[in-house]
């Protein structure tokens, strides 16, 4: 009885989407960056945004994450519109509830700061002031992303590309965010390194109940990571649905072309 009740209340808490996007549009002069994008994202859900270069998927991600300000539309997170939210609050969100994993680890890491400092920065930004505890957490996170804690004082420059990317993920997830934006996180990595990273991400998504919006042009990555897909072309969402359904039974002409243009995924 008690168990059933606690499950009920947990369900209650998760009532409603984590992120609700309405009519999001961004124009570069007369050119469309992205237009009229709407979707809901629920806790624990991984949404893939696929499309060719220039399809607007990166513009969309930047607008969602607050790196670009959209011209129209709403991005409602936990009941608040992050587009109109004052910048201090948006930044606070960016170092607590939200995280952003860049394609190039150099954009997401401080290359001159040790691995431990990189992971610890978000903790210190939200007020952690115990060196020993920060170091312990950093070391724990290095382990979780399969970097030997013995390398805590090494700079990212001394790491391989795959390690740098894993370090960037640790740096982002250390404060237990609820929503993670990822821009081609496996781009530029060897296939075997990609697989390891995908496995790691899947485990973290499941264990932490993360909601993820991942931009990728790699349909194989999308299939393995994303629950749902949005296919973009010329700044607009032309098809959306369950990942395997979109890939195995694509409806739009463009999606059919996209799926048939890649080798077996």
């Amino acid at each position: 009885m008690e168990g059933a009740l606690s499950i009920l209340s947990k369900e209650k808490q998760q009532d409603g989407p984590l992120l609700r996007v309405e009519g999001l549009s961004k124009f570069y002069g007369g050119r469309i960056g992205c237009a009229d994008v709407s979707f809901d994202l629920w806790p624990g859900e991984v949404l893939g945004i696929v499309g060719e270069s220039g399809s607007g998927k990166s513009t969309l991600l930047s607008c969602l994450a607050g790196h670009l300000s959209p011209d129209r539309g709403e991005v409602i997170y936990a009941g608040r519109d992050t587009v109109t939210m004052p910048e201090p609050e948006r930044r606070m969100l960016g170092r607590t509830d939200w995280a952003f994993v860049h394609q190039n680890p150099r954009d997401g890491l401080r290359m001159g700061v040790s691995a431990g400092g990189n992971v610890g920065e978000r903790l210190m930004a939200v007020g952690a002031r115990n060196y020993g505890a920060i170091r312990e957490t950093a070391s724990d996170w290095l382990g979780r992303v399969e970097i030997s804690p013995g390398r805590i004082d090494d700079r990212p420059r001394q790491f391989s590309g795959g390690m740098q990317q894993r370090l960037q993920i640790a740096r982002n997830l250390v404060t237990g965010p609820k929503l993670v934006f990822m821009d081609e996180p496996t781009g530029g990595l060897d296939v075997s390194v990609q697989a390891r990273l995908l496995d790691l991400l899947r485990g973290l998504v499941r264990d932490m109940g993360l909601a993820v919006i991942i931009v990728t042009h790699d349909l194989a990555v999308a299939r393995l990571l994303a629950h749902r897909l949005m296919v973009m072309k010329d700044g607009r969402v032309i098809e959306a649905g369950l990942t395997d359904q979109v890939l195995d039974d694509p409806q739009a002409a463009y999606t059919q072309l996209l799926v048939s243009s890649v080798l077996q995924v």
């Binding site: 369950l242 395997d244 359904q245 039974d249």
Partner: peptide, 9 residues
């Protein structure tokens, strides 16, 4: 089968 599983629309 695929339709039942939601794989095909």
């Amino acid at each position: 089968m695929r339709m039942i599983y939601g794989n095909y629309l």
